[in-house]
Design a protein around this nucleic acid. Sequence first.
RNA 1: GCCGGGGUGGCGAAACUGGUAGACGCAAGGGACUUAAAAUCCCUUGGGAGGCGACUCCCGUGCAGGUUCGAAUCCUGCCCUCGGCACCA
Length: 808
Amino acid sequence: MTQVPPYDPQLVEAKWQERWVREHTNEPDLDRTRRPFYNLMMFPYPSAEGLHVGNMFAFTGADIYGRFKRLQGYDVFEPIGFDAFGIHSENYALSVGTNPAQLIPKNIETFRRQLRRFGGMFDWRHELSTTDPRYYKWTQWIFLQLFAAGLAFRKQAAVNWCPKDMSVIANEQVINGYCERHPDTKVEQRFLEQWFFNITKYAEPLLKNLDRLDWSDSTRTLQRNWIGRSEGAELIFETPAGARIPVFTTRPDTVFGATYLVLAPEHPLVDQLTADEQRRSVNAYRRQMQGKDLVSRRVGDKTKTGVFLGSYARNPATGEAISIWIADYVLMEYGTGAIMAVPAHDTRDFEFATQFKLPIREVVRTSGAEPLPRVSEDGVLVNSQQFDGRPCRQAKGAIVAWLQERKLATPEVQYRLHDWCISRQRYWGPPIPIIYCDRCGPVAVPERDLPVELPFIQDFRPDASGVSPLARHKEWYFVKCPQCGSQGRRETDVSDTFLDSAWYFLRYPSTEFDDRPWDPARTTTWLPVSSYIGGNEHAVLHLLYSRFVTMVLRELGKLHFDEPFPKLRAHGLIIKDGAKMSKSRGNVVIPDAYIQKWGADTLRMYLMFLGPFQEGGDFRDTSIIGVRRFLDKLWTTAHEAATQPTPGASPGFPGSVVERKLHRTIKKVTSDTERLDYNTAISAMMEYLNTVRDERVVAREAIQPLLVMVAPYAPHLAEELWSLFGHERSIFTAAWPAFDERLAAAGDVEVVVQVNGKVRARVTVGRGASEAEVVALAMKDESVRKFVDGKPVRKTVYVQDRLLNLVV
RNA sequence: GCCGGGGUGGCGAAACUGGUAGACGCAAGGGACUUAAAAUCCCUUGGGAGGCGACUCCCGUGCAGGUUCGAAUCCUGCCCUCGGCACCA
């Protein structure tokens, strides 16, 4: 036996990482390609703590898929970049007293080092950062495209304001009405003029296209729910004075049970509908609601409150006068901001009616005698005049049609989706490219003046005014109006980071061009994205916004496709001790020490072996040794095989158990890797190597195909061992092994023999044996005979190569 | 409350479309090698009962039922857990 040198991952990995750079191994020619494959993963936000194993898990899973596709003969483009703008970076910079412009490059440097070290197949020529003016020039350009298309508009909107932060904070940062960072500080509500994108205009295609996208079901479901389509009708309730109050309802069938109306406190008709004797209490209530922040109004305690307006409207079905109320359980942002209350068949209305002693009229009966409120649609109408006895579902259309004749109803579809607010009263983002002019109004910054660079300012701290810090920078703030040349002022808000990430995948193939956001030829070749892998934390916003932006750009003739990610897979989450990794919990695991101790290949493979990639798992270091042992064994076995004589002289291999196992393994690893079932693919490779060693068939033909299969998982080790077999070019220029179905199916199998469904014996037969053969063999078996016991066999069930069941 | 995912050995998990439950790995126990240890290699390992023994039998996939020759897998009703949404009319 020859002496095998020890496996030293540090040495091997450094060597190959250096060679990949030197030989441009991971840099496909983007202009000359026959089989382009754009392998995309969600780019990271470069935090100060560095890349954690959760990121590495995601990137490894995506990288394995890219390398696999490459071995299958595709020209794989696998870019990476940094999503580095935003409130997280800014808050961190504030807390350490540095400018984010100085901090971010350091963080990126750390990430870059970590990303190189773990062995990703990245094309670094096309790295990008959203904070680079060369990048955000085009982010601003996209804003201008939407502005020109009439899809960007300004309106007053409520925002969450933390008085301690002296800043607007996002909904996610409000915990039960208190600031995330200041648990003793109540969030306030402020009304500010904000920029919005009209994404709701695209709600229908955004929803509908989901059906034809090859996406993880979990992601599609999340997105469907987010868009929240509801079918129903708009009904008109008239007042004696002639006012028309439209309400949206999904249950027009229950209109006969509508015993009062409720408007949102902010509803524009409130003033007009309020009777003089009620005005004081109505105004008091409205003032009280204004002070309440959005979030605590929604999530706080849900005891119903409200005030009677002192006026009445006519129920369009019954003609009865019903009272009109305002209450905070009705939201201005949804539907028409007003509802018809059907207390007998709606939980919220029932609570409210009970509390304020309002009439409750039952109009739906179900088969069981459930108590009110009875929300189910599986029932028939009662107390509904000519519609009595009709099933709810069927009555819906009929009632709408009946009211429609009198112009009191129209069928209507509502979406939960809101327009996308992109304004941030912050410093660390791309300035929104708009100039306000007293004469011309909001004017787009001309394209030739892009980018509107974010100035470097020392004092970027937000203040209590609610005005963005950029407004204090006078030389930047005042600017000539591009239209009339008079003194204008820049928009001082910056845009949402989700706008940065809504188009980054369009930029990657074209990063070297400064005169266009993306090159048409490159884009035609490489887009849409071939495979996108990322976490479900971005299932809704990032993916929805990217789809929206793509759809609009397609409409504007800037792109040739309307869905950016035809194929998307969601990976699972790596947790630690049963909880999500987070800095506040202090359970963040950084991969560096593990790579130092075990090597990147071992850590990559271990993360994939931990559990199903699309489900995630709990990170513990206890079983990493198992993966390392496998790689050690592979190292040793490959060295032994490499010293064997050349192919053709491995007499033990052809026709052996090992050869048949190899073909079964190739089959399984191929399909498992394609489906991202990496954990079982790794098991199959382990099993195979165990067979090679048990059978002592240490042949080149047995090992080389395994190296190719291992390569996506442990690329450095695979390269090293591949070169050991005398190959001069990278293993990633090799071909993925093919399998022979006949060989995979050859050999003996054990068939289970059951009597009345219980396993009584096992017989060994050649694969593909007939039922008669197996029955004959089975009947010879003593324990089978014992249970059959001379009784006639009523029925036999035979499953090829698996099982025989004798029913007596 | 609503919508999705999940509950399988001591642990992470596997089981294609209903067909041998626990592959692969960790941990544990025993053995070989070694002056010793590490490393490596071999054996055992879901629970229970019986046998000197190659073995035999019973139970077992969150709980209670059902369908089927056969159920982790399908159906009905519950329990627990994770994620999303949350007064969305």
